[in-house]
Design a binder for these strands. Structure first.
Lengths: 214, 214
DNA sequence: GCCGCAATTTACTTGGAGTAGATTTTTTTT
DNA sequence: AAAAAAAATCTACTCCAAGTAAATTGCGGC
């Protein structure tokens, strides 16, 4: 990965060329995080990206900015996966289930980066930005779906937050002791969010006499 | 609040009495956090509790331990409020709505402490403990409710996590720009978790012709 | 050929978590 | 009763990671 074998000293680089542009640096940072885990320091990241710390700070900004930038990456990735899974499904219910499943599998596939990005404290500004970006697409989707169904669209933001929060915590908890099967977990979460608690906490009288099929 | 006007020096205190016990210290820490905000340092907390840092560390443990201890406090408080609200409701649906509402109002009433406790990164061990404690009661509740309804009780942990995650993120986002009315927000969240997305995303054909009552 | 500007690195400062060791009082032992 | 051991405390430190300032070198204009 090193650009050259000669040890760089201080001073402007030889070819008039800048050491690394923003995209390259972000990619390098992501790679370091993937291989060394979510607890890497800014020194680690700079070193791993073959760059010194001031360069990293000058090009990308402080740690919060790095988190935000990488968060955008991974969120957009997850959104793409979710959209693809959703479109391939035959009906709304299946689409929703497939979306949840795709999200969790996406997190699983990029654990370290997900954990790095989610190291932001829930009270922080980065966290807020992260949630905003995660929920933006959902908000407009819910909003128009509610309107289409003749229902109040005002609920959209709260609902999107709910789902983001659900996915975030389920993913995090699952990542720590990965005992359970991911698809099962996805199914369970889908069932709650799709059908709600009513069938469980206030079951129709007939429910106790039947088997829980379909 | 200061125990005495004489400046303490080093050495074992006069009366054979220890300077502060754990409970007193936790209460003092909570008070400091409430008045100075969630960004207080351990020095601030020690000073505010009229104690030196090593005492704080010896009596309570490190910062993670402090967070955990205070988290238990606030979680137990919230649980009490939720249970009281739930019991006073006439039917399951109302009980659930009242629970959500009580939780959010409880958070609102102790903002700083809630933010302090929720400064734990989602990837951390404290976070996990926090979630575990928050969800314990719900898990057993859901589990038995599911069994009673003749349904699979295995979903209980995932469902409890979902609800904890939902509440956490909704509370956090709401705390930052408190524009909306808290009761409205609670109602919106309740609607999602109680009835699910189905009525919105896959409305029964009749839904567009009727008013959305019962 | 020399001077200012640009890009980089080295080496620092800062701030908060956590700790070691000095200091004083109580308790126990002889 | 004196001295040694133990207990409880405070001062002052270390350590680590984030972020920055100043020194160092190369490039272009005159």
């Amino acid at each position: 990965m090193s650009t050259s074998s000669t040890r760089r000293g201080p001073g402007r680089p030889k070819g008039g060329r800048v050491v690394a542009d923003r995209e390259t640096l972000l990619a390098g940072a992501a790679e370091v995080i993937r291989s060394q885990g979510p607890d890497v320091t800014m020194d680690d990241i700079a070193a791993g990206a073959s760059v010194t710390k001031p360069i990293l700070y000058r090009t990308i900004g402080d740690k919060a900015a790095l988190v935000t930038a990488l968060a955008e990456w991974i969120i957009d990735d997850l959104n793409r996966a979710v959209n693809a899974a959703s479109r391939a499904a035959p009906d709304p219910r299946a689409a929703f289930g497939a979306s949840i499943r795709a999200y969790l599998h996406g997190v699983d596939a990029d654990r370290n980066l997900y954990l790095f990005v989610n190291a932001a404290a829930p009270g922080s500004d980065e966290f807020r930005r992260l949630v905003d970006r995660s929920s933006a697409a959902m908000i407009s989707g819910f909003s128009s779906a509610r309107a289409r169904a003749g229902l109040d669209p005002e609920v959209a933001p709260a609902w999107a937050w709910s789902i983001v929060g659900t996915l975030q915590i389920v993913a995090t908890m699952w990542l720590r002791d990965d005992g359970r099967d991911l698809d099962t977990l996805a199914r369970e979460v889908s069932e709650l969010l799709w059908s709600g608690l009513a069938p469980t906490l206030d079951p129709p009288p007939s429910a106790r006499d039947r088997t829980p099929g379909a």
